[in-house]
Amino acid sequence: MIRFIYADTLDTYPRLRDTMFRDRARQFKERLNWQVTVDADGLERDEYDAINPLYIVAEDARGAHSGSMRVLPTTGPTMINDHFLHLTDGVAIQSPFIWECTRFCLSPEADSKVAGALMLAGAEFGCASGLSHSVGVFDARMILVYRRLGWVPEVLGSEGQGRAAISVGLWSMDDDLRERLSARTGISREISTHWYERAFGPALAA
C-alpha cells in the first residue's frame, strides 16, 4: 500500500515511521556510508525531516516500511540548495513548479515492484500538484533503477567515487509520464490514482 504522509501526522503510523527511519539508517549509513546522523535507536533523521516534508511511503502487509521518499518544495529550505550548489553550477533551484525529492530508500526485504510503485506515486503527486520537474540528490547507482523504469533524471552534477558517489538529478514530468511508468511497472493508473485520492481526494488537475 502506498501512503502520502506529512511529517506532522507520521506519529499516526508508529511502526511505519520507525521502520522507515531505521531502513534509511541501513541504506544511507551502513550500505552507502553517507555522512548522516543515526540516533541511539538506530534511526536516521536530518534537519529536513523537521520542517514537515511529505513522505511517500510503501507499506508492507505487516505495516512496516518497504520503501519511501521525501518531498519538499524548493521555495523553502532544501538539501540541494543548502548543500549541493557546487553540483548545480551555483544555481539555487527555486520554483513553485519544482519540488525536491530526496532519501529515496528501499528496505532490503522490499519486493522488486516497490521502487516502481514509489516513482509512479511520486509522478501522481507531482502531476496533481501542477509540477514541471523534481530535483534531488541520489546515490549514483540508483540510475539503473530509474533507467529500468523509464524515468531517467538529467544529471546536473556528481561527486565522489564508487559507493560514495552522489549526483544531483532533475526529473521532468510531462503528459505521458504516468502512462509510461504505469506500463513499465505493470501497475494500472486506476490503482495509482486511487493511492492519491485515498490521501487527498480527487486531483485538482489531471
Binding site: T75, P96, I98, E154, S172
Partner: peptide, 17 residues
C-alpha cells in the same frame, strides 16, 4: 555547455526569482 533541459530549469528558477 549544458543540456537544453538543464537550461530550461535555470531559466525557470530565474523566472521565479
Amino acid at each position: 555547455g549544458i543540456s537544453e533541459h538543464t537550461l530550461r530549469v535555470y531559466i525557470e528558477s530565474a523566472r521565479a526569482k
